[in-house]
Amino acid sequence: MSTDLVIYQEEYKTLEDVLRRLRVDSNARAIFLIDKNGQQIAAAGEIDQFDTTSLASLTAGNVAATDGLAKLIGEREFSVLFHEGQQDHIHISIVGKRAILLVIFDDRSSLGLVRLRVKRASGEMEAVFEQMANRATEAEAAASSASPFAEITDEDIDALFSE
């Protein structure tokens, strides 16, 4: 079973910084980092313009379907997807096997520029993911006794559903 994805303040900030820089460097409208299971990890840019939850879920569905297609023809994965619209375009790439980077851009940028900048930023993000994975293993070894969820009571859970 895959382990839970746990992200702390510091990693979150680093990822957000990378996204923000990538947005400026690539002249993109918005950038989203999404977990492969469809949950948004971080974002930068004109995020208020979009339904970010739907965007994350559909992007993950899209990547999952494309992964399925790749396997059908004997490929391991298609690591980059590109959707071309009339004004806005979407560049989707896989980062560190676990996450999806979604770049929304218009004609103020170009596919070439986005590809180039995404490549560089991906390396930086992969390093953060690696750090997260290492920490997860360490935490497991330390029995993760500090988790706030260890103290959830039945009453807490019932309270959630009392209305």
Binding site: M1, S2, T3, D4, L5, V6, I7, Y8, Q9, E11, Y12, K13, D35, N37, Q39, I41, F149
Partner: peptide
């Protein structure tokens, strides 16, 4: 796979 975000205090 639960996604726990300590930065935003969210469990997904």
């Amino acid at each position: 796979m639960t996604f726990i975000n300590y930065a935003n205090k969210e469990i997904n």
